[in-house]
Every structure is written in structure tokens, then in C-alpha cells.
């Protein structure tokens, strides 16, 4: 397909300004069995995260005497995309994302408190719309907090990209597919430390610097939504239920 024009009259295809997020809705504690859970709608992305642990680490040769092992599993449902039916089982992409997401949370979880155990983070992409890994990290952080796993911070993530020569926050699927660059970033908003950092396409040194500043600003908004979602759990009386 031919590359469409991504910015028309100073607005993006979905009507956003350069530094606007898509609509984001976060709900914590939507599952009954998982120790913690969260559901995030981010644009058309629909992502569910569930956490189990700390529990016995199997196989045993993976366990550490010093800290809990943190394992994330990022998985896409075969019906999540607008295109063809997906194949089940891990792809090279989902294995890579599982690894970098695990590493994000190894940084903030106070894992020394639980030697010989594992903490499992399961992420299911139920509908995908560009930017699933950032929405997944944001959901997983809320699920971990909902499970009562001690953490130094509530991590969130968002991407910055370049479309028609301009830096744009939170790339849409079209901007992701046809833009010049995509740079997903996860941060600990309390001190601004960067915990996931990937990038493809071409950016100048200054564009990376400006992009990261845009991410830091957006992270404040996202982390406020995460905190509100977690506090709302304690105002509900009903059993956990997923509202999609």
C-alpha cells in the first residue's frame, strides 16, 4: 500500500495534536483467580494483565537464592488483529517482548524479599492497534500493584514516533506502519529512569532528546490514571469483572 499523508493541516489522522495521547482507560482487579490483574484500553488496544506470585519457582534450576525471578509472558490472541487469523504459540516478536518486559519489572520489584520464588506476569493482547507493548507494560504495572508485590515505583510506558517529519506522541497503527521512526519507552515516573528503550527507523540526536522529554511529560498523566484505577478498587463492593 502507498504511504498515506499522516499529518494534515497540523493534525494527525485521528484528529490528535502532536503530543496528545489516545483515549486511555485503566481498570484494576478485573479477574478473580489471579493475585492481581488489570485491563487497559488504549485507543483500540485491549490488553489484559494478570499476576501470580511470589510462588514456588519451577523448574528449580531457574530459581535464585537471592531474589524472586520475574517472568513476563506477552501473548497475542489469534483474533486480536484487523487482518488475518493469527497463529497460536509464541512468535520471535512475542518472545523478545516478553524478555524486555520482564527486565523492566526486575528493576522495580523488590525481589530480594522473596528468594527462591518466581513472580509471573501474564499479558494477553485481546485487540491490537499499534503500541501494544507500551499498553502492556502499563497494564502489568497495575496488575503487580494489585497483587501487592512490593515495588519501588509504578512503571508506565508510551511511544514517541516520527511521522511526516514531526515527532508524535503515542503512535497510532498508521503512524507506526508508515512513519519514519518508532521509539517505545517505559519509565519509572518517580525519578524519570528509563527501563525499556527500543527504537527503529531514523532519528537525529536532538529528536531523541525531545522525544524522551515528551515521554516524561506523558508519563505523569498515565501514572495518575494508574494510581486512580488502583484506588478505585477499594471503593467497589462487587466481585471482579471484566467490562470491555
Amino acid at each position: 500500500m502507498e504511504k498515506p499523508q499522516l499529518i494534515i493541516d497540523g493534525k494527525r489522522l485521528d484528529g490528535r495534536e502532536m503530543e496528545d495521547l489516545r483515549p486511555v482507560k485503566i481498570t484494576a482487579h478485573v479477574l478473580n483467580d489471579a493475585n492481581g490483574s488489570a485491563y487497559v484500553e488504549w485507543g483500540k488496544n485491549k490488553i489484559l494483565a494478570g499476576v501470580y506470585g511470589p510462588r514456588e519457582c519451577i523448574p528449580r534450576h531457574d530459581q535464585s537464592l537471592i531474589r524472586a525471578v520475574v517472568r513476563a509472558r506477552y501473548n497475542m490472541a489469534p483474533f486480536c488483529s484487523l487482518e488475518e487469523h493469527g497463529r497460536s504459540g509464541p512468535s520471535r516478536r512475542s518472545v523478545e517482548l516478553s524478555k524486555v518486559i520482564s527486565e523492566v519489572f526486575e528493576n522495580v520489584i523488590i525481589s530480594e524479599a522473596y528468594p527462591k520464588t518466581q513472580i509471573q506476569i501474564f499479558i494477553e493482547v485481546l485487540q491490537s492497534d499499534g503500541g501494544t507493548r507500551c499498553a502492556a507494560v502499563t497494564a502489568a504495572a497495575v496488575a503487580l500493584a494489585d497483587a501487592g508485590i512490593p515495588m519501588r515505583d509504578l512503571v508506565c510506558a508510551v511511544a514517541v514516533g516520527k511521522a511526516d517529519g514531526q515527532l508524535v506522541l503515542d503512535c497510532s497503527k498508521e503512524e507506526d506502519n508508515y512513519g519514519e521512526s518508532d521509539m517505545p519507552v517505559a519509565i519509572a515516573p518517580r525519578n524519570g529512569e528509563i527501563l525499556l528503550f527500543q527504537m527503529d527507523g531514523l532519528l537525529t540526536r536532538d529528536e531523541i532528546d525531545t522525544g524522551l522529554t515528551m515521554v516524561q511529560r506523558a508519563a505523569e498523566k498515565i501514572s495518575a490514571m494508574q494510581a486512580a484505577a488502583l484506588q478505585q478498587v477499594y471503593e467497589r463492593k462487587t466481585a471482579p469483572k471484566l467490562e470491555m
Binding site: 479477574l31 483467580d33 489471579a34 490483574s37 489484559l48 494483565a49 494478570g50 501470580y52 510462588r55 509472558r73 501473548n75 489469534p78 497460536s88 509471573q120 501474564f122 494477553e124
Partner: peptide, 14 residues
């Protein structure tokens, strides 16, 4: 197809 997604139960496995 069906998947017992591991987040659904502590008894399900990857």
C-alpha cells in the same frame, strides 16, 4: 481452538 490462558488460574500452565 481453545487456550487455558495462564492468567486465568493458578492451576493453568504456559
Amino acid at each position: 481452538g481453545a487456550e487455558l490462558v495462564p492468567l486465568a488460574s493458578g492451576t493453568f500452565e504456559t
